[in-house]
Nucleic acid binder design. Structure first.
Length: 534
RNA sequence: GCUGGGGUUGCCGAGUGGUAAGGCGACAGCCUGCUAAGCUGUUGGGCUUUGCCCGCGUGGGUUCAAAUCCCACCCCCAGCGCCA
C-alpha cells in the first residue's frame, strides 16, 4: 500500500516504536490470490540448443575466431567441386529446393463467359490477360495476383480468389519443380565459398567460425538424427597449418565445456575434401558422463571431427593455403551438457511429450474462487478460521460466536456451529492442506502419514477451512449488502477443489489429467457458518 | 527406402459397412462425520435449434449407408538399411 512519507516521519519523531510497528500494517495483503505461491514473478527460459550455441559462439570468440555467416543455399555444383567422385553419395543426402512454376494462363471464350457469370457483369479481357502476363513475367507477385485480378475486374478480393479457384484450375494443380539449389548438408560446403573470397585478402592466420543450421535428407528422424541440425564449425588458414592445429583448437574449445582429456583417432572413412590421413575424430572425456546411463558411461565421447582441406578441392576455388577445419554437432554437445538421450526430446520437447509443468507452477494455478471485497469481510474470514481451529473438537450441538461488528453500517454476528447431535464442531478433514506433489494435487492433514508429501511437495498455504472461510465471508457481505437478515454456508464432505471454494486453471487441470496425475482433494469437513444482521 | 504397428471426442481407449462403447476428467442433482473417488444424470462443434449440418490424420472415390472398403498423400512408433 502506498504510504504518506511525511506523516510517517512525524509519527516516528513522536513515537518511533509505534511508527515502526505500524509498518507491518502497510505490508498487509489480504487477497489470498496475491500471496505466494499464487503470486509469482515468472521468468523466461532459453532453449538448451540455443543456450549451447551461445556458449559455443563465446568460446570461439575467446579463442580469437571471427564469426561469419556462410551461404545456406548452394548450387549442387559446389558439392561436386568439393567432393569430386564422391559427390553423388553426398548429394543423395541433400535437400534440393523446388518451387511452384508460373503457369501460362489462356483466357478462352468459355472462361470469359464463366467469369462474367461469376461477377455478374462485363469486364475488359485485355486487362485481365495483361495481369496474367505480368504475373508470368514475375512483375506481379503471387501474393498480389488475386488483388490485381480483383482490381481489373472491379470486384472483391474474395470473388477474385473464387475465380482463380473455379475458372483457372491450373493454379490449383501446380506441382513443384526442382532446381539445382541445395541446402548445405554441412558447413564445409559454405566454407569453400566464403574462403574463395577471403583466403587471398585477409592477413594470416585467418581464423573464422560459424554456428549455424545444416540440413540432411535422412531417411527418417530418430533418437540421434534430425533433418536439420546445427554445426559449430571453424577454419584456420595459414601457411603451415597441420592436424596439430586441429588438436589444439579441439582442446581449447572443448575445455571450456568441462571436457578434461582428449584422444585423437584417425578416421578411416576419409572424405575427399580432406588431405589423406588428416581426418581425425576427437574423443573427449567429460566427468559428467561417468556412470551415466548412456553408452558413454566410461566418460569418453566422440564429439568433434577435424581435418586439413585437400589442395585438390581448394584448387577448385583458387585457394592456395592449407586450411584446417573442425566441426562438431551442437545438439550432440547439448545432449551431453543437459543430459538428454534422445535428440528429438532435446530439440522438440513439445512434440515428444516433454512438456513439463512443475509442482510450483501447478500450485500457482490453484486460486481461491470467491474472496471478500471489504476489509471487514477479511476480518470475518480470519475470525471464522480462528474459532473453527480453536474449537474444532467441541462436542455438538454447539455454536461459537466468531465475529460481532459493523458491516456496511449494520450490526452483524457470525457463528461457527454444529446443530446435529453427537458429533464435533468440525469434521476431521477441516484443516487439511492443499499440497502439490509429483504432478498431483492433494488435500491432506499434516500427519506423519503424509510427511513425505509436505516435505517434497509444494505447499499452497491454504487449508480447507481457509478457502471456505473466504467464501463464507463473501456470502455474509452479500447478505448484508442486500439487506437480508440471515444466511448460512456449509460444507459437508469435500469432493474436489470447487467444494471448498478453490479453482484450478483448466489448462493445468488438463495437464494433470494428461500426465496421469490426480486431483485428490476430499474428506469429511462438516463446517457450518451462520450469520445474522439487524 | 523396406517391413510391421499406429493416428478416434478435453485425456486414455474400444470399434473391420448400419450412424462413435467404456473409463478418466468436467458439470448438475442426490447421499454425507474420521479422509486415497458413494449414487444418478449430462458432457464434440455449428446453426435459421421439436430439427438440420459438420465431426474418427488429409484429400479423393465406392455405397442406400463409411471411423470401417478402395486410391493417393501426411505424420508418429519399433526394427532393418543408409549415415560424406
Amino acid at each position: 500500500m502506498k504510504f504518506d512519507a511525511r506523516k510517517f516521519k512525524e509519527l516516528a519523531e513522536k513515537d518511533f516504536e509505534k511508527a515502526w510497528l505500524s509498518g507491518k500494517e502497510l505490508l498487509k495483503r489480504e487477497n489470498p490470490n496475491l500471496i505466494y505461491p499464487r503470486l509469482g514473478y515468472v521468468y523466461g527460459e532459453e532453449h538448451p540448443v540455443f543456450k549451447t550455441i551461445e556458449m559455443l559462439r563465446k568460446a570461439y570468440v575467446s579463442m580469437g575466431f571471427k564469426e561469419v555467416v556462410n551461404p545456406i543455399i548452394v548450387e549442387d555444383v559446389h558439392v561436386k567441386k568439393q567432393f569430386g567422385k564422391e559427390a553423388l553419395a553426398v548429394l543423395d543426402r541433400c535437400f534440393y529446393l523446388a518451387s511452384l512454376p508460373k503457369p501460362n494462363v489462356g483466357i478462352s471464350a468459355d472462361r470469359v463467359a464463366k467469369i462474367k457469370e461469376l461477377i455478374g457483369k462485363d469486364f475488359d479481357e485485355e486487362s485481365l490477360r495483361s495481369v496474367f502476363h505480368l504475373y508470368k513475367k514475375g512483375k506481379i507477385d503471387g501474393d498480389d495476383l488475386s488483388y490485381e485480378i480483383a482490381r481489373v475486374l472491379g470486384v472483391d478480393d474474395l470473388v477474385a480468389i473464387r475465380i482463380l479457384d473455379e475458372v483457372f484450375p491450373e493454379f490449383r494443380d501446380l506441382k513443384p519443380e526442382s532446381s539445382r539449389l541445395t541446402l548445405r548438408s554441412h558447413m564445409t560446403t559454405g566454407w569453400f565459398i566464403t574462403l574463395s573470397e577471403l583466403a587471398d585478402k585477409l592477413p594470416l592466420p585467418i581464423k573464422l567460425f560459424s554456428v549455424d543450421r545444416c540440413f540432411r535428407k535422412e531417411q527418417g528422424e530418430d533418437a540421434t538424427r534430425l533433418y536439420s541440425y546445427f554445426s559449430a564449425s571453424c577454419v584456420v588458414v595459414n601457411e603451415d597449418v597441420t592436424v596439430d592445429d586441429g588438436k589444439a583448437v579441439a582442446e581449447a574449445l572443448l575445455k571450456q565445456f568441462g571436457f578434461e582429456k582428449f584422444k585423437f583417432r584417425l578416421d578411416e572413412k576419409r572424405s575427399k575434401y580432406y588431405v589423406p590421413s588428416t581426418q581425425t575424430e576427437v574423443y573427449a572425456f567429460h566427468p559428467k558422463l561417468v556412470g551415466s546411463k548412456t553408452k558413454y558411461s566410461d566418460g569418453w565421447v566422440e564429439i568433434a571431427t577435424f581435418g586439413v582441406y585437400s589442395p585438390t578441392a581448394l584448387a577448385e576455388y583458387d585457394i592456395d593455403y592449407p586450411v584446417m577445419n573442425l566441426g562438431l554437432g551442437v545438439e550432440r554437445l547439448a545432449m551431453i551438457l543437459f543430459g538428454y538421450e534422445d535428440i528429438r526430446k532435446l530439440v522438440y520437447p513439445q512434440f515428444y511429450g516433454e512438456v513439463r509443468v512443475s509442482d510450483l507452477e501447478i500450485a500457482r494455478a490453484i486460486k481461491v474462487k470467491e474472496v471478500p471485497t471489504t476489509e471487514v469481510g477479511y476480518e470475518i474470514a480470519k475470525k471464522i478460521v480462528e474459532v473453527a481451529v480453536k474449537n474444532a473438537d467441541a462436542k455438538s450441538p454447539c455454536s461459537f460466536l466468531a465475529f460481532k461488528g459493523k458491516l456496511f453500517g449494520k450490526e452483524v454476528e457470525v457463528f461457527v456451529e454444529e446443530t446435529e447431535e453427537d458429533s464435533n464442531l468440525c469434521g476431521p478433514a477441516f484443516a487439511n492442506e492443499i499440497v502439490v506433489y509429483n504432478g498431483s494435487v492433494y488435500g491432506v492433514p499434516r500427519t506423519e502419514e503424509f510427511k513425505k508429501i509436505f516435505e517434497e511437495g509444494v505447499e499452497c498455504g491454504i487449508r480447507y477451512i481457509d478457502a471456505f472461510a473466504f467464501l463464507a465471508a463473501k456470502k455474509i457481505e452479500e447478505m448484508t449488502f442486500k439487506g437480508e437478515k440471515s444466511s448460512s454456508v456449509r460444507v459437508r464432505n469435500v469432493e474436489g477443489l470447487s467444494s471448498i471454494n478453490l479453482q484450478i486453471q483448466d489448462n493445468v487441470r488438463r495437464y494433470i489429467v494428461w500426465k496421469g496425475g490426480k486431483i485428490d482433494v476430499r474428506g469429511p469437513m462438516f463446517v457450518k457458518v451462520r450469520a445474522k444482521s439487524e
